[in-house]
Structure formats: C-alpha cells, structure tokens
Design a protein around this nucleic acid. Structure first.
Lengths: 138, 138
DNA sequence: CCAAAATTGTAGCCATGGCTACAATTGATA
DNA sequence: TATCAATTGTAGCCATGGCTACAATTTTGG
C-alpha cells in the first residue's frame, strides 16, 4: 500500500526568510521616512514587544542582513538592502495587482503583505502583465 | 517624536490556524482517497517526520478539530469537517484563479497552497468573479 | 502462529517567535 | 547638572514546529 502523495515541492520561501524580508523591508522604509531605524520603530510596526524585535534583529545581524551596536540604530548591510529592495518590489507588484482587480486599498494592503512571500516568479510576472494591460485600457 | 506606523490590523489568519486548516484539509483528502487517514499519510504529505505529525495531531485534537486513539486512524470532528470544507473551497478558488491567469498548473498549485491563508473574503470574491468572467469569454 | 516490517508513541533536543519583569543606558528637561 | 522618561538589553518563561533515537504496538508474510 504505497502512498500517492506529492513530494512537497517547497518553492515557497520558508518562514525564517519571510521574517528576514519583512524586517529589512520595514527597516528600509523607516529609514526613508524617519532618517534612522530603532528597535522601538519595528516594535510598533509589527505590533510586538521590543524584546521580540531585539532578538530577531540579533539573529538577522548574525545572518548578515543588518548591523547594530548596543543602544544604536539599525543599519542594513549591502545584502540587507538588496533583499529589502527586491522584497519591496514584489510587495508593490502584488499590491498594484490587487488594486487593479478592484479590491479596496486597506484590504489590498493587508492581503499583499500576507501574499507577497508565497507568490512565485511566474505568478508575479502574470500579475505585472495584468496590471500593465489594465493601464492601457484606462 | 511619535511614530506614524499603522496599528497592525492582523486580518490574516495566525499561524496556528493555518496549520489547523492545512491538517484538516489533508485529513479530509486522504480519507476521501484512501478510506482512512493515518499519521504516516500526513507525514508524507507534508514532508515532515511522523513525530511532528503526532504532536500536531494531539494539539488539534485538544483544539477540537479531530480525534484519534493510540495507534488508530485520524478522524475529523464536525468542526474539523466544517473547517476542512471551507479551506478546500478557498483553496479551489485561488487555484482556479491562478489557472485562469495563465499560470502553469504545477506552479499554480504551489502558489495556491501558500496564498490560501492570506486572502481575505473580499479578495476571494474578486477572484471568483474573475474566473466566472473568463469562463464566459471562452 | 511468529518473526520481521511498518507504524506509532515517547523522551529529549533545537530554533523561532512571542511574552513579562527587571536592569542598564541614553536623552531630555526642569 | 541631576533626575526622570524613554529606549534598549537580559533573564527566563511559554508554544509551535522541527528533529533523532529508541520503545511499543500493529500488520503482514512465511
């Protein structure tokens, strides 16, 4: 009696990577809008305690996405900036796609955040094409 | 210096709920195709060890989604069946939507699994409407 | 029916991501 | 400047979800 189940492809980014992307994206945005990013900014952004942020930041520092000295601001490494930019681009495409489908902005923003880590390159391309098509139509 | 960050809406189902949905959905499908669902079936389906499945099953049993006796099959409760059916329906809508967009079946299946937990009711409705529209066009 | 294989359970480990409580440091201001 | 508020760090707890190793049970075949 052998099983016929699928071999669990796992294209989808794993959860650690999702966290890394969410963090570097947030860091970049906070720096852009406030000049520097601090633990407290991320805690507010994600709605978690500063302790959770501190721990995650130290893990992401070990993984080479960012740096920070005690009581200092959070700075993206080159790798962190690259990931942040890619992540923001994906996010933007998904958001524009949902808006183009006629979904309300606030809902689209929440859904885009949830979806952005689970969309393959192929799907992302189709999303882009769809948005481009709608722009032509007016 | 107060922050202007958004109050983290959290419409998106939390991760425990995602796991519950994935499991009951899988249990229902395995029962449909093999007559009964066992720990080993879920382990193969999700690509994890039987130990992980056992632990999760016991948690989901405590949460009222399913029941199982030692060395016995996994059975859905009424609640488990309800959640499984809703979950499968959402999954199906997302999958059909991706296929309607022209995404290849294997990619669409992976993306649908990742996306299904992050799509709001509003977005789901738009997805359905889009698919319905395409069906008319041929 | 009994031995071997398959399945399931248990013990114990790890990482992630969440928390409270409390300590330390920095920053602001009276 | 000295104190108080805000920020950050640390200790230690919990749940989830992953694992290996080993024990127990069930199933299967000879």
């Amino acid at each position: 009696m052998k099983t016929d189940s699928k071999p669990h492809v796992r294209t989808r980014r794993d959860h650690s990577t999702e966290t890394a992307e969410d963090y570097v994206e947030a860091v970049l945005q906070v720096i852009d809008s406030r000049g520097a990013c601090r633990v407290v900014d991320l805690a507010k952004r994600f709605g978690v305690s500063h302790v959770t942020v501190t721990k995650t930041v130290s893990r992401l520092q070990a993984a080479g996405y960012l740096t920070s000295e005690p009581y200092g601001p959070i700075i993206l490494t080159r790798k962190g900036r690259r990931v942040a930019n890619e992540s923001m681009k994906r996010h933007q495409i998904v958001l524009e796609f949902l808006l183009a489908l006629g979904i309300g902005r606030s809902v689209a923003e929440v859904d885009a955040e949830g979806m952005e880590h689970h969309v393959s390159q192929e799907t992302l391309s189709k999303f882009e094409a769809f948005v481009a098509g709608r722009k032509g139509d007016g």
